[in-house]
Design a protein around this nucleic acid. Structure first.
Lengths: 150, 150
DNA sequence: TCTATTTTGTTGTATTTACAACAAAATATC
DNA sequence: GATATTTTGTTGTAAATACAACAAAATAGA
């Protein structure tokens, strides 16, 4: 059997760890960068979708976002057409830190991919996207309380 | 810029989440499976190396391992030649659960890789191993308190 | 239209995670 | 051989994470 997921796990934990350390100087605590980046890229997104996107528990996302709001990095806006949802937007302060987050992410990608040709990178990226799409299905299935059989 | 690491993060979180849910029926709490699997595969490994391998903080590993010991799934053995280290071994009970962990991991790999040809899987695996090796260097560098410049 | 289900969000609680600081043994350096 | 450094392990503390349970609005189904 292959051990693709094991490699992926190692890479993900390592880079998450690096990012968390590096973003401390922006007063961002563990995990916060994940949410802030996506809110900057997709202003107006709601909490529920964000959690799905990041693949994190809804309640974890709720608290991370609440904290970002408290820090004045994002704001929640009620939607007049739908009283249930709260759209998320970066504040000016949030927009200010975004370039730093982006630069860090780009740098990490760059070092991660060191020694790979453009073509190899492209191949890797395409394959990963396919894997991710496979994963999404299982994740939602299990998260909803269903049981996989194997 | 590519977004390879973002894809990797999504996949890793999704599968970690799935595994944690599925292993609850074995009385394994969050993250424990990671350690137990590797101790079964490399009996005699020490805590420090295990943390490096998994890419998790030393103290996190320490507590996860302490708990596995408390649950009677692994045991720590002192080494007569080196009074500092403690080698880790699965107990009979630990060995018993291993096949379940393995089966789950294999199944997850299988679903993750659904629709990819054997050749694509091989390519992906090889590329990921290269990425992981790149990552290891940065991780250790940053973990030791050094600063990356970008 | 009425009711059931789904979506979205929140809060209480237990647990993991990581950083900081420490200690002791082993190894390297002089 | 003495001492400085690295390796390995532990504990205190703060914070994130996830599950359970709840509530309210929106949507689907009859």
């Amino acid at each position: 059997m292959s051990e693709v997921l094991r490699e992926i796990g190692m890479i993900a934990r390592a880079f998450d760890s690096i990012s968390n350390i590096e973003f401390k100087e922006l007063e961002l605590t563990k995990g916060q960068y994940l949410y802030l980046v996506r809110i900057c890229e997709q202003p107006g997104i709601i909490q529920e979708k964000l959690a799905e996107m990041i693949k994190v528990d809804r309640t974890t996302a709720a608290r991370a976002i609440a904290k970002l709001e408290l820090q004045g990095l994002i704001e929640k806006r009620s939607d007049p057409d739908n009283r249930k949802i709260k759209k998320l937007y970066p504040t000016a302060k949030g927009e200010e830190v975004y370039p730093f987050l982006k630069r860090e992410a780009d740098y990490s990608d760059q070092t991660a991919l060191a020694g790979l040709s453009d073509e190899e990178i492209e191949t890797l990226y395409k394959l990963l996207k396919r894997v991710r799409r496979n994963v999404e299905q299982d994740w939602e299935y299990v998260k909803k309380g269903n049981k996989r059989s194997y």
